[in-house]
């Protein structure tokens, strides 16, 4: 039930309390934006007709980069890996 669907804010109404969001494929919907500050253009997570969080696309890319480094480090430490040093 905690399913969250990503969307983009395309319009704000009623002083920002209501947002029109685009779920992609031309699906637009009015959702509750009353407790999550958003701007037009923001990427958001919508749950049960309510914006619960914003999504940071740059952080998504950065995070994968960091995990890649962690995996490389794990490999370097593993004695079972060819070229590994052991922990």
């Amino acid at each position: 039930m905690c399913l969250g669907v990503p969307a983009q804010v395309v319009e704000l109404k009623e002083g920002g309390r209501i947002a029109v969001v685009d779920f992609g494929g031309g699906v637009l919907r009015e959702v509750d934006a009353s407790f999550t500050p958003v701007k037009v253009g923001d990427y958001v997570v919508v749950h049960a007709g309510t914006i619960i969080a914003t999504v940071d696309p740059e952080e998504a890319v950065e995070s994968i980069r960091t995990w890649n480094e962690i995996i490389s480090m794990l490999k370097a430490e593993d004695p079972g890996e060819p070229g590994g040093q052991g922990a």
Partner: peptide
């Protein structure tokens, strides 16, 4: 929404998934 599609693609990526597994 290219940014959201990029995230979905990135986090379902085959090559990275194999590496993590």
């Amino acid at each position: 929404m290219p940014a959201l599609e990029r995230i979905a693609k990135l986090y379902r990526g085959d090559e990275m998934a194999r590496k993590v597994v």
